[in-house]
Every structure is written in C-alpha cells, then in structure tokens.
Design a protein around this nucleic acid. Structure first.
Length: 1090
RNA sequence: GCGGAUGUGGCGGAAUUGGUAGACGCGCCAGACUUAGGAUCUGGUGCCGCAAGGCGUGGGGGUUCGAGUCCCUUCAUCCGCACCA
C-alpha cells in the first residue's frame, strides 16, 4: 500500500473544515499574528503552479505561528472586479458577476486541494455589495475631507468651511489646487454652486478636468501605473492623453508621508526604491524669471548688479494684489481693444521719447498705459473691460491720490486722429518734470515682482534642483503645452512656433518616448531675465521639457545638464561653466564632449557664490532668492493624483449624485448603492459609460447618479481591514477588531503591485488613520515578494519545408524552424513521439531524426502562458503526487523571492522523500513500526540539528533549505534504521507546516487526537548538538589537504604540535619552512609554509 | 541615463559572522533485484589528468595566513523608472 496521499489529504481537509481548525478569534488571550496573501483576481484560466507559490510560503508561516501559540489571522478573498469578465460580458452578454462567481468557484476548488489553512469564514469579494458598501463609504469620507498642511493630516471639510466663514482662505495651508485668495466676505457672497466649486479644489476626492490616459480600445481612462510604455497594461492597447472631467484622489497630499513611512516598514529595498522613485521627491528652488519681448531692440538696459536701491522700479503694487491681478493683466494684454492696439503701436519702444508700459498694475487697478518716470497714466475710455466695473472718475481720484496724473482720450479721438493724440501725450510728457521718487510703500519689495525692461510680459516660474547653477543659465525652455507661449512669441516667429507646438502636441507619448535622442525646438523671440545676473536669455520651446512636471518651464544650464548641453550644442547657444571639479582649472566649454552634471565641485563665474561648494551654493542661492523675493526653496514630487473614474460597468458605482451640475455624496444610510443591471455592457452612442444605460439611475428625488465606476484598486485598497471584521454591517470594521489585529504582520505577494496597490493601499490606510479609524499608520509591517515562476517551454525542430523533425543535438545540421510543443508530451526533454503524432493532425505523418534512439527537445525559459504550451496545472500534479509533495516541491525550487523556472522533473525527488519518510513510521503492510526504545545520542543529534535548522530557516523564510534539512534528516534516520517515537514524533510536528496532511496522519496514527495544528513546535536542545571532537580541515597555504580529528577543547599549542606530527602533513612540510600556523577553534587549521 | 537585483557543476540551487566551495534534489554513469522498468535499492558523479597533482564561484586587480563572501575595476543578464529640470 504505502503512502496513500489521496486518501490522507481528503481526510484531513475534511477534518480541518469540519472542526474549523483555522478559525481566527477577534478576542483572544493569545498574541495576534496576521499573515496575508495578496488576494487574486479570479481569472477564467484558473491557477497555474506559479500562483500558489506565495500562498504556500505564507501558509507554512501561518501554521508555524499557530504551533508557536499565536492567534493567527490568515484569510483569503477575491479581487473580483476586473476587465476580463467585462470584456467577456461585452462579447457574450453574460453578466460579469456570473462569470466571476464561476471563476471564484474554480479557484476555491483548486485552493482547497492544496490544503491551505485559511479561515474561510472571513472570505471577502470586492464585488459583494456588503463589501463595496465600505469602499463607497470611504470614498464619501475622502470627498468630505481636505488636507490641512499645518497639522499634516486630513480633516473634515466642515472645519474648512468654518475657517472660510471666518477668514476666507487667507490663512489656510491646504494640499489643494491653485485657488485665488478670497476673504470671508467674498466666501459668503458666493452662491452655493460657487462655494461647492471652491470646496472641490480642496476635497481629497475631487472632480476636475484632468489630462488622463485615455485608452480608446478599452473605452476607459487608466491610472499611470496601468500604463506601460504608452500601452495599456491589460491588453496592450495604445493609450493617448485626453482632457476629461474625472474623479481623482488627492494622493499627492500624502506624498511626504508615503515616503517617510517607507523607513519604518520591513520591505525589500527593491520595492521601497520603486515607491521612492514613483513618489519622486526632489529638493530645489522655485525661481521667478521676468519675461520680455525685447525683440529687435539693440541692447536691453542693464540693471546694475546687486544693491536694492538700484533695482529697477517696476513694481507698483504689492505682491498679494499682483497675484490677484495677474490673471487679469494677462487677459487684458491678450485682448486689447482696437483703440489700444492702435495707440500702442505709436507709443511702444520709446517712439515718443518716453518709456511707456501698457496694462500695468498700480494699486488695485490696471491702467491702460503708464509712463512711470513721469508718473503719468494714459487711459482710453469708451470701452468696458470685463474686470473694470468701477467708475473711471473714482479711479482717477484714487490714482491721483497716489501721485499719478491721469490723461484721458476717447476711443473716437484715437480712431479719428491718432497722430494728434500721440502728439498731445508727447508734449504732456515732455513738459512734465521727472518724478524720481515713487513713494516707498508703493514698491515695497517684501515679495514684489521684478518686471523686466522691454515689453513687460509678466513672469514665469521655473523649478530647479540646481539653483546653484543659476549664473550658468543661458536660455530658458518652455514645454510646448505651456500657456505662456502664445503670449510671448514675437510676431515674426509666430508661424514657426505654432507649427512646432502643433507638431509636438500631436506626437504620441510613444513617439516622444522613443525619439528621446532627437533634439528639436524653436526660439519664441522672447527673452527672460536671469534674476541674478540681470542678463537676458532667449526663451525657447522644446518637447524635452514636460508640461506635467514642475512648472513646465526650465532654466537651461547647458554646462551642467546633459539635455541642456545637447540642446545648446544643436542650436549653438552659449554655454557657461559655473562649476569646476575641485582642484581643476575651468576649461572652454566649447571643447567639451559632454556636460559636467555632478553635484560636486566649486562655483565659478557666479557672483556672490564664487568659491563655494555646490551644496553650500544651493543653500546660499535659495537664501538670496528668498531675500530678494523672487524665489524660494521648494520640494517637488513626481507623484500625481490618482485618477479614480473608469468608464466601465464592472466596478463599484460612485455614491454620488448631481444637483445643478455639482456632485453631492449620498447619505451613508443609503449605502451600498448597488450596481444596476444594464442591457448592454458597452458605452452609449453618446459615449457615456455603460451605467448611463441603467434604468432609473437616479435618486428618489430624481437627481442623476454618477455613471462612472471606480477603478480596480478601489476595492483592494482596504481589504486587509475588512478581513478583521467581515461580518460587520454597521461599520467598515469595529474599533475593537482593529485594535486587536492592528496591521498585517506578514504580507506576501508579487512586486508588480509596487506602484499600484501598495501605494494606494498605504494612502487609504493613512487617510483612515487620520480619521482615527485605524490605529496603525502603515498597513503592512513586513512585505515579501515571491518571485515569479517562469515556464519552461519545450521546443521541437522541424526541417524547413518538410514534416521531418530533428532532435536537439543534431538540429544545427539543418535549416530548422523551432516550434513549441506541449510540455505534457515531453518527459525529461524526451519527446513522446506517438503522443506527438496524435496531438495534432498535421503531425500524424511526421518523421523524426533521432539521437541515441530518442528525440530530445530543446527548451526555453519564458513566461508561463497558454500560447507557449508550457502551463503546468497544479491539479494534475496533485492527482499524481499529492498536495504535500506539491507544497514541498514549490518550496524546494529555490529562494522564495527569486524568479525561477518551473521544471516538473524534480518533483519526483520530493515525492521519494515523502515515501522514504513514511517508511520510517510504517512497514510495507502499513503497520506502525514506531518503538518506544530510547534513542541514541546520534539519533538525538540528528533530530535536534534538524529542529534548529528548520526553525531558523522558517524564521528567515528560507523554505528551500528547510525542505533540504528534512531530506537530510530522513536520509540519516533511515541509515540509522531509527524508528523511535522520541525522535519521530517531534519530527512529524516539525514537518507539519510544510507537509500538513501526512503530518496529521502520522500524528493520529501515533495515538494523538484533535489534530496537529496547535501542538507546540519542537525546541532544540543544545546539549544534543555538542561534539567532543572536531574534524579539523588542515590546509597548507590556504589549500585544504586533509582532515584531522581532534578534541574540541584542545589548546592551540597542542593542536599545532599534532598537526606537524600528523602523517599526512609530512608530504607538505618536507623541505619547507613553517612560517606560521593559524588555528581557529572548531573551524580550521592553516599552515603557512614556504 | 538613474535606481534595484543577479552571475557558483549538464540543470534547480547550498555555503547565517572572511574559515572544508558545490549541501539537498534533478539528470547522468555503474551495479543489485526483476519477465520487464519510466518501480525500488546500492555506489559514483565540478573540470583536466592513468596518477601524483593542477584548475575552479562572469573577467581583471587588491586586502588577508585564508575571499563565492570584503575593497577597486570591468563585463553580462533581469527588473523598475525614465528627456523628472
């Protein structure tokens, strides 16, 4: 009979189920331990041998912890929303839920056969209304929250509204969109809709026009982590950028905390690095550059360096007002009236002999034209600017109070006789005395704007991580999408710039990525003023600058940035070296082959920072910029907010309805908002999401519900919390349950979730932490990423144009074509020719060229997939060898975290081991042969050596060496013909986490009741491991030559003597001098001779 | 380009702190038992060499009595991010 795994495994799986052996208790005196597997998406294909790898490892650990007296939470569930079921629904009309449930059943059956110790009573499915009620609930909380930077956590939105009513948004530091400042009065004056619109800029779940990754083939948007190289991760369809109104989660508010949290979790460096990279923190400075369209004018007036007194007096308003007026100025400049345009042509560029600016902000006004030197304002009447509702009279009075003279002309005058108007202005200005002094409070510099000379175009901010190189900035580059481009481009360059911008915008992401090395760009005709040197630098636009990062504009430092360098070389722009390697002399950048990008060196050609090191200079420059009010230190993140809408059917509906076009959350009592039936799973003709097809998709009051659904990561972001208390209908989870289970002690899953699930889930948890709902701010204490199991495909070689196949070793003699062959037709690389002929009709008459009478297949290690015919189904292996063998073999394959190819042939060895183990306990007739005889020292040593090894291997998740230890132990006990209870009973317990079924069977046969799962894990006793002697390896000059058995307590001097006397040593000593003898107790003896 | 990881027999892989390189398993070779073997058992198996011995952890250099392990350098493969300022 022997080892009947089939019978045994069935029996014990039934036992576990009936006795609820693996039930976890929310109240317990035992310490808790939470072991979690990343729950699977139940695909139609079922499990292949790669899927259970992590589950087996975590199961071993969970079982080990139970043996150690822990109350173990080890749950399983299903990430049930996903594209395949929906695609299938579109094709066949089958409701995705039907498909999903069918797949879940299949998964469950497969999982059950492997003998996992899950507490199945806690199963969750993300598509279950009882579950997604809480996904929706969390969304509502996000909607009702904002992020307060002052206390660095989320707060209820009511808090914010209260503050708005008190002080407007003047003292609010929030993680939010760009919002104009407003006072309490202004807040109160807003309509409800306006207030809602304003709040939307602060909410953690918000609706906004967003540039999204639109996938036309899938008909939905995708999150950044769902897009790989410009194609959708699922399906590989092209993805394009599109502006759409979408829900987003303000995950960027948590960027720093997500980064900091990584320091306190026990994860692999790899995943931590991926997350750090994804968050992409960089420190630097925001610098304001003034912009001007100086164009054809010879030399721009040079502001004298340094010295606040001599700074040009361009600011005639304070910073806050300027901020408020800025947009208006931009707008007005963009849309001048015809009269203004006409007059400007006559006034610009000193034509009158006086320097005149247009649309300049003075106080809270924007005046049409001004000559600052003469403190004279020229206004054109007879038009109503959108933003100027006040009476001109009042305006004049105020401006006069500030010391300005206002002269007015009507539109008509300008149109009828412009020369006369210009003449009047000229003579007025000619006769007016220069107003040298402008009252000091008018241009207090606390954070004023430096506006450059020339035609004033406002300013532009750039982000740089290298403010130290500001003196080396010789040009500026704007992203083609940058809003200023249109404004600043000179007429003569307009055509060229527009052509370029259009071209750049229409290039796909894909093209932009693949053509990284081509340098393209055009000059806009505008200039920016380097705020430290006062020098004008040309402004270009080029697509190597991304609109999505920083401000979409850069200062280019070609000497110290490789991309800027390439650009400067290509377009022949100046390159100034400002950093030199310590101890080296500056060289002519014209001779350089590449830029010097290093963050180390000494500053040169850089004014006040000359001689400083780079890091000193960075800080000095930031200080200076802040002091001058033209820049500040700034931390920038690459992380983007998570787009949360999907135009799909099979997902959680948003608990949102629309009133007057504004979204409102459902009352919590109305949750869950269940997914409605639809007649068709495609978008509507109008392009609305499938939910728009649902009948009566509106509230009782008739307000329409949101028709988008949530993305895949919504349901998986908080599932580990729901496992703690999955039966709770009133709460996500009870406070008690959360305070008991707290966080996941061990989390196992693939590292493909590093930028998706693992970031979103941490964000979700931190948000709930801010709400006081969860007690740990990091959800996953320890994370292990199991490696992927790759397929091992078998290859046959067909001679081209024939139906003749040549064996692997002889294939080079022919022109062959490599074909994948089903791995089930191949054993140990030998092809079953008869089976192959029957496999496909076209091979029925195939002929073969054999080697040694066999057809040997080649192999290829690649992804396990149906098309490669290399998928190994665990069910087949369980049928043939049993679950215990499968469990052991998956662990035996290699280190858990390493990718490794699957090769079924090795499984025999593990199977043999279990059979051999069985024979320690039973004879050929299945009679128990275990005796109560006292074990020998040697036997005890074998056992305790194994206990020590297996324990330490489990602790460090080295399961492959653990299996090997069991094999060694079994081999040694077999050699010793040991059948003693005192040895074999602990061995069964030791093995139980790995090969649970056979261990249970042995345990029961040995006379125990109630199962093995909670029997204390064996402890090793050092006294059995003690050795009296040690076989010292003796080496000469580091080469091991022979072994010498010596007592362990022998003194070094004695050992040296023994070594020299040893017979085998003579050969190596002969004719040589002994220089030195090194003795490391219980390790090695090394004799140095020469 | 940046970051992370990995290179050890025919194969999967051991070697926890610098101390016997190749544990354990597969495969292969030989033998035993068998009508048979794709069952079971026993022995062998890094490479070269009849042997003594020599050579061996991707390559080169170094530290050390001693290096797969530490340092420098270089190559290759895999993964992640990528014109991120």
């Amino acid at each position: 009979m022997g080892y009947e795994f089939g019978k045994i495994e069935k029996k014990w799986q039934k036992f576990w189920k009936e006795n609820k052996t693996f039930k976890a208790y929310n109240k317990s005196e035992k310490p808790k331990y939470y072991v979690l597997d990343m729950f699977p998406y139940p695909s139609g294909a079922g499990l292949h041998v790669g899927h259970p790898l992590g589950y087996i490892a975590s199961d071993i650990y969970a079982r080990y912890k139970r043996h150690q007296g822990f109350n173990v939470l080890h749950p399983m569930g299903y990430d049930a929303y996903g594209l395949p079921a929906e695609q299938y629904a579109i094709q066949t009309g089958t409701h995705p839920e039907v498909t999903t449930n069918k797949n879940i059943e299949k998964y469950r059956h497969q999982l059950d056969r492997i003998g996992f110790s899950y507490d199945w009573d806690r199963e969750v499915r993300t598509c279950d209304p009882k579950y997604y009620k809480w996904t929706q609930w969390t969304f509502i909380q996000l909607f009702k929250s904002w992020y307060n930077k002052d206390i660095d956590r989320a707060e209820p939105i009511e808090q914010l509204i209260k503050e708005f009513e008190k002080n407007g948004n003047l003292y609010i530091h929030a993680a939010c969109d760009e919002v104009e400042s407003f006072s309490a009065q202004e807040w109160k004056a807003k309509t409800e809709k306006e207030q809602q619109e304003t709040l939307m800029h602060y909410r953690l779940a918000y609706l906004a026009d967003t540039v999204v990754n639109w996938c036309p083939a899938l008909g939905t948007v995708l999150a950044n982590d769902e897009v790989k190289d410009g194609f959708s991760e699922r399906g590989g369809h092209p993805v394009e950028k599109k502006l759409m109104k979408q829900w987003s989660l303000r995950i960027t508010a948590y960027a720093q905390r997500l980064l900091d949290g990584l320091d306190k979790v026990d994860w692999t460096d790899n995943v931590k690095e991926i997350q750090r990279n994804w968050i992409g923190r960089s420190e630097g400075a925001m610098v304001s550059f003034g912009l001007s369209r100086y164009g054809e004018v010879e030399t721009p007036p040079q502001p004298s360096p340094g010295g606040r007194e001599q700074e040009p007096r361009y600011y005639n308003t304070d910073a806050r007002t300027w901020k408020a007026l800025k947009e208006n100025v931009k707008d007005l400049r963009k849309n001048p009236t015809d009269a203004e345009k006409l007059l400007w042509e006559k006034l610009r560029r000193n034509q009158t002999g006086h320097y005149i600016r247009r649309q300049h902000a003075i106080g809270s006004y924007i005046v049409d034209f001004v000559c600052l030197k003469k403190k004279t304002i020229i206004e054109i009447d007879g038009k109503i600017h959108k933003y100027q509702k006040k009476e001109d009279k009042e305006r004049t009075a105020v401006l006069q109070e500030k010391g300005f003279t206002v002269i007015r002309f009507s539109n008509q005058e300008v149109f009828e006789d412009i020369d006369k108007v210009v003449e009047k202005i000229k003579s007025f200005l000619d006769n007016k005395i220069d107003e040298e002094e402008i009252s000091s409070e008018e241009h207090s510099t606390e954070s004023g704007k430096v506006l450059p000379p020339g035609e004033d175009l406002g300013g532009v901010n750039v982000f740089t991580t290298r403010p130290d190189t500001l003196f080396g900035a010789t040009f500026m580059v704007l992203a083609p999408e940058h809003e200023l481009i249109e404004k600043i481009t000179t007429p003569d360059r307009k055509e060229e710039v527009e052509k370029y911008v259009t071209w750049a915008k229409n290039r796909s992401e894909r093209e932009r990525m693949t053509e990284v090395k081509t340098v393209t760009g055009v000059f806009t005709g505008a200039y920016a003023v380097n705020p430290l040197t006062g020098k004008e630098i040309p402004v270009w636009t080029a697509d190597y600058v991304l609109s999505g990062y920083g401000t979409g504009a850069i200062m280019a430092v070609p000497a110290h940035d490789s991309r800027d360098f390439a650009f400067a070389r290509h377009f022949n722009l100046p390159i100034i070296q400002v950093v030199v390697r310590e101890g080296e002399e500056p060289t002519d950048p014209a001779t350089w082959e590449e830029s010097y990008d290093s963050k180390e060196g000494i500053m040169i050609n850089s004014g006040f920072i000359n001689g400083m090191t780079v890091s000193e200079a960075i800080w000095a420059t930031i200080d200076k910029l802040e002091e001058m009010g033209i820049g500040y230190g700034k931390v920038n993140y690459r992380l983007r907010d998570a787009i949360f809408s999907r135009q799909r059917y099979w997902g959680e509906p948003f608990p949102i309805y629309y009133k007057n076009g504004m979204p409102y959350p459902l009352d919590e009592s109305e949750l869950p908002l269940e997914l409605p039936p639809v007649d068709n799973y495609l978008p509507t003709e109008k392009g609305e999401p499938p939910l728009a097809r649902a009948k009566n998709w509106k509230t009782k009051e008739g307000y329409p519900y949101e028709t988008n659904t949530m993305p895949g990561f919504a349901g998986s972001s908080g599932y580990y919390l729901r496992y703690m208390d999955p039966w709770n209908d009133n709460e996500y989870f009870s406070k008690e349950a959360n305070e008991y289970w707290r966080d996941v002690d061990l989390y196992l899953g693939g590292d493909e979730h590093a930028t998706g699930h693992l970031i979103y889930s941490r964000f979700w948890n931190k948000f709930l932490f801010d709400l006081g709902l969860v007690c740990e701010d990091e959800p996953y204490k320890k994370l292990i990423n199991q490696g992927k199991i790759q397929g091992r495909s078998s290859i046959v070689y067909r001679i081209q144009g024939t139906n003749k196949f040549v064996s692997y070793g002889l294939r080079k003699q022919y022109q062959t074509q490599a074909l994948h062959v089903d791995i089930n037709l191949v054993d140990n690389d030998v092809l079953d020719i008869e089976a192959f002929k029957k496999w496909r009709p076209e091979f029925h008459d195939a002929e073969f060229i054999l080697e040694d009478g066999k057809y040997i297949c080649g192999y290829e290690v690649e992804k396990m997939s149906k098309s490669k015919l290399n998928v190994q189904n665990p069910d087949d292996l369980i049928d043939k060898y049993g679950a215990d063998t499968l469990r052991l073999y998956e662990m035996f394959l290699g280190p858990l975290e390493q990718d490794k190819p699957w090769d079924t042939k090795g499984i025999e060895g593990v199977f043999r081991f279990l059979k051999k183990l069985w024979r320690l306990y039973f004879d050929e007739n299945d009679n128990l042969i275990v005796t109560d005889e006292k074990p020998t020292e040697q036997e005890l040593k074998v056992l305790h050596k194994t206990i020590k090894k297996v324990r330490s291997d489990i602790e460090r998740f080295s399961f492959n060496t653990g299996v090997s230890a069991f094999m060694i132990c079994t081999n040694e006990l077999t050699d010793l013909k040991c059948h003693k209870r005192e040895i074999l009973e602990p061995l069964a317990v030791l093995l139980a986490p790995y090969a649970s079924h056979i261990a249970e069977e042995i345990w029961e046969t040995l006379g125990h009741e109630g199962g093995i799962s909670y029997v204390p894990y064996p402890e090793y006793n050092e006294k059995y491991l003690k050795e009296d002697t040690f076989a010292y390896p003796v080496s000469f000059n580091g080469k091991m030559r022979f072994k010498l058995e010596l007592p362990v307590d022998m003194q070094k001097e004695e050992i040296e003597k023994k070594v020299i006397e040893a017979r085998e040593a003579q050969k190596w000593i002969e004719g040589k001098t002994i220089r030195k003898i090194i003795v490391v107790p219980k390790r090695i003896i090394n004799v140095v001779v020469s």
